[in-house]
């Protein structure tokens, strides 16, 4: 069964805005939600300690703050996002080699073209599998009641 990663429009914008703000370097951040639900409830923009246009390292201090905050809200970190400034929204070999958790969602934001492209993947034992990304247009308790829209690819 293919996974569908759900996120609100606010979180989508927050994520993409952080990536654009990070230019010319890659930008990164963490995503929190309920494990198994594949819905992002919180986005934590973090510093890229590598300060590079080619690689990123989530600032460990920012990671700890995000992890504690997510836990306080009853969530967990369920994924990471980062930008590719000049390449596709597809995991690089480095992304695959360093993927920290097979249960996480790996969201790529490509800023190569005029319009940002957002894609999500699972990375398990070196195997990349794309997940659908659905942006929910309004916040509410029941995702079924929300008007959902597939991100244009």
């Amino acid at each position: 069964m293919s996974t569908v990663l759900k996120l609100s429009r606010e979180i989508y914008v927050q994520m993409v805005a952080h990536c654009i703000k990070g230019l010319p370097d890659e930008a990164c951040g963490l995503l929190a939600g309920d494990p198994g639900e594949a819905e992002v409830m919180r986005c934590y923009p973090t510093r890229n300690l590598a300060a590079s246009a080619r690689v990123y390292t989530v600032d460990p201090k920012d990671h700890l703050i995000a992890d504690r905050d997510a836990e306080r809200d009853g969530h967990e970190v369920i994924g990471v996002f980062h930008s590719h400034t000049h390449t596709d929204a597809y995991p690089s070999q480095t992304d695959v080699d360093q993927a920290p958790d097979p249960n996480w969602h790996y969201v790529l934001v490509s800023l190569r073209d005029t319009h940002p492209v957002v894609r999500s993947y699972s990375i398990v034992d070196g195997t990349i599998k794309e997940e659908s990304v659905v942006v929910l247009s309004a916040s509410g308790s029941d995702p079924q009641e929300r008007e959902a829209e597939r991100v244009p690819v």
């Binding site: 690689v55 990123y56 920290p100």
Partner: peptide, 28 residues
């Protein structure tokens, strides 16, 4: 505090301290 900025494995801990372990998150 990240122990890499302290004394790594030699970093002292005291009663009641909270030690957190998290994966390093990086890529390209």
């Amino acid at each position: 505090d990240d122990v890499r900025y302290l004394s790594l494995l030699e970093t002292p801990v005291k009663d009641g301290d909270e030690v957190s372990i998290l994966p390093a998150v990086a890529g390209g």
